[in-house]
Design a protein around this nucleic acid. Structure first.
Length: 253
DNA sequence: ATGGCTATGTAGCATAGA
């Protein structure tokens, strides 16, 4: 089974790229973030014509998540259990024998922002909920835009980013807390090129200058991690015309 | 170089992203 996560930064703008990519990569399931589309405007017909089913939870302008899969996603659940949140950031569903949890973790803006406190509270709720979820579903994958670079090697310039949002000790501790629940960072199960990133700023030619961060992840529960055969980031998508600032991340098992 | 670029909502710019 091949699964992927991609922050599309507007599904409307990225739809042609998504359909091309689905035809080329043929993943069994894809989790999308930042769809920025309300449910009644979700491009379901185009996606179904490409051979995929979809479940989604969106809002205008911000956030929005979706799960696309060749087989119908079942037992769909919205949000983080026990956490009231108007922002559409999580959708979960079962595809084949795998529980997929699609997450768009808050950005946090800066350490002195209310949004940073919201991010940490959000991550705490996610952790509590995932602890219970992973006990209900032996084969669980948590995938999406975590907005956390877990280690210095996930940052193009660790000195410049030290202590900044996406890299702060509290955010990294929250990420390690998820690992502590029994999840593995699929990307690090394998040898990877140096300077492997999943996001590059639109500005200052950051992509061409390899100035990126690895903030999009696929976490696998122990059983799935044992079966995992590959994990990679499809950086070619960042070379497209009108690219998303994020590249898709992929895992196979 | 606290700028740089992109997308959205909405009709000039403001907000957010990371």
């Amino acid at each position: 089974m091949k699964i992927a996560a991609w922050n599309v930064n507007s599904l409307k703008v990225r739809l042609p790229q998504l359909l091309d990519w689905l035809a080329r990569e043929q993943p069994d399931a894809v989790c999308l973030q930042e769809t920025k589309v309300e449910d009644h405007n979700f491009p379901l017909q185009d996606i179904e014509r490409s051979g995929y089913r979809a479940v989604f939870s969106g809002q205008k302008t911000y956030n929005g998540v979706a799960i696309l899969a060749r087989e119908s996603p079942l037992a769909v659940e919205h949000g983080v259990g026990g956490f009231v949140d108007a922002q559409k950031r999580v959708i979960s569903a079962t595809v084949k024998d795998v529980r997929l949890v699609c997450v768009y973790v808050p950005n946090g803006q800066s350490l002195d922002s209310d949004k940073y406190r919201y991010k940490l509270d959000w991550l705490k709720a996610l952790s509590t909920w995932l602890d219970a979820e992973s006990k209900k579903h032996a084969r669980t994958a948590v995938l999406g835009d975590f907005n956390i670079a877990p280690e210095d090697r996930d940052v193009h310039d660790p000195k410049a980013w030290e202590g900044q949002v996406l890299c702060s000790p509290a955010e990294r501790a929250a990420f390690q807390g998820l690992i502590g629940l029994g999840f593995k960072d699929s990307f690090r199960l394998f040898d990877q090129p140096e300077k492997s990133f999943s996001w590059w700023d639109y500005r200052m030619n950051a992509f061409q200058r390899k100035m990126g961060l690895r903030i999009d992840h696929i976490l696998l529960s122990d059983g799935l991690a044992r079966d995992c055969k590959s994990s990679r980031i499809d950086i070619e998508m960042r070379r497209n015309e009108r690219p998303s600032d994020h590249a898709p991340v992929i895992a196979g098992f």
